[in-house]
Amino acid sequence: MAANSSPSNGAKGMTVIVKTISSWVKMLIFLFGIYIIITGHLTPGGGFAGGVIIAGSYVLLMLAFGREFVEENLPLRWASRFDCIGALLFALVAVLGLILGGSFFVNWLFRQQILPSKALELVSAGTIPLSNIFIGIKVGASLFLIILVLSMFRPAHLRGEKE
């Protein structure tokens, strides 16, 4: 990983070709992840799949530009907070079901007088898109964190070989 073959192009990351292409593609991947999340109740996919794709866009940046670049972009502490906040908001949706609908995870938005909607519209299906968005935040942040932490770890015998 991270072959240091282009010293003229900064010390970190891959060649200029990879860097240029990935800086174009990263936004597309990120947007595709968001698309998968917000249409999760209409088409295949959803919070988990979209979250994985969003994390994938960061992993691409990590491979092309090196870990430090990504850490500046999304610091570890903030990723960890997004992770927790996503889970908390998901729990909030479930608890609101208990308060407003009488049971945990009741789809309390799925009523015409609260949220008028037709089937197969983007705004439909009550709390399911909300849950998908929160799960997307949680999965994206936590998968990003897992890969970041894995790339930070170096076994003792490899430490100091690079850098």
Binding site: R77, C84, A87, A91, L98, F104
Partner: peptide
């Protein structure tokens, strides 16, 4: 409501790391 036995510790588990640092 039985899920509170899971919800209380789960919400606590995700709220506490926000307080770190």
């Amino acid at each position: 409501p039985l899920p509170v036995f899971v919800a209380i510790p789960l919400i606590a588990a995700f709220f506490l790391p926000i307080l770190s640092g």
